[in-house]
């Protein structure tokens, strides 16, 4: 793919050609799911995010400019849709369950040995607020200032959520390892 082929499909989408829309959907479905799955707790939620994102894409395709790459535009829309979904069921994180995470430590090899699916499973177990900040900061490379502005929280909260997300992940991985060793 491909510039020309993609341009043709996008042009088709601009005139509401359903075939083109279906082609675009099929072409980027995997990519879109890969992003959405990180933000969503479940696969079903990820599908919802992807579906909503594509609806936005088709409705706003007029606003897409060719000097952008379609992938990055789509990525932005998916992340924003995921954030909207997060906001819709946002619950303030409680800090009462803070534990002494800092004593947990393990080798880098253990993390490296994890597959993408295993990582996704751990990320999905994070509370939504932690998961969102973790994805935005670590994977999608937003700054804390941007995260604070987009999510409507303070910079301190963004930092705090990220820190808690890391610690929680470490704990989840640790228990996973323990479980594996026991078996």
């Amino acid at each position: 793919m491909y510039e020309n082929e993609l341009t043709e499909i996008i042009n088709g989408c601009r005139v509401n050609n359903q075939k083109s829309q279906h082609e675009l959907f099929a072409l980027f479905y995997n990519y879109a799911m890969s992003i959405a799955h990180r933000y969503a707790g479940t696969l079903h939620e990820a599908e919802e995010i992807v579906n909503d994102s594509f609806v936005k894409v088709f409705i706003n395709i007029e606003r897409f400019e060719y000097r952008w790459t379609f992938k990055s535009w789509l990525r932005k829309i998916i992340i924003n849709t995921a954030i909207d979904a997060f906001r819709a069921k946002q619950i303030r994180p409680k800090t009462s369950d803070l534990e002494n995470f800092f004593d947990l430590g393990f080798e880098i090899d253990i993390i490296e040995s994890l597959t993408r699916e295993e990582m996704l499973r751990h990320v999905a177990l994070l509370p939504p607020a932690y998961r969102t900040v973790f994805n935005m900061f670590v994977v999608d490379e937003y700054s804390h200032e941007e995260i604070a502005e987009i999510l409507g929280i303070s910079i301190g909260s963004s930092k705090s959520n990220l820190s808690k997300a890391r610690q929680k992940l470490k704990k989840l991985i640790q228990s996973d390892i323990t479980e594996r060793n026991r078996i």
Binding site: F25, S34, I108, R116, M119
Partner: peptide, 23 residues
């Protein structure tokens, strides 16, 4: 290190079945 590892792996494209029902 943790961030880099997660970022690297999570940025990889996964495999998801694109069913017609989705479309």
């Amino acid at each position: 290190d943790l961030d880099n590892l997660f970022s690297k792996k999570l940025n990889e494209e996964g495999q998801y079945a694109n069913l017609d029902s989705n479309w």
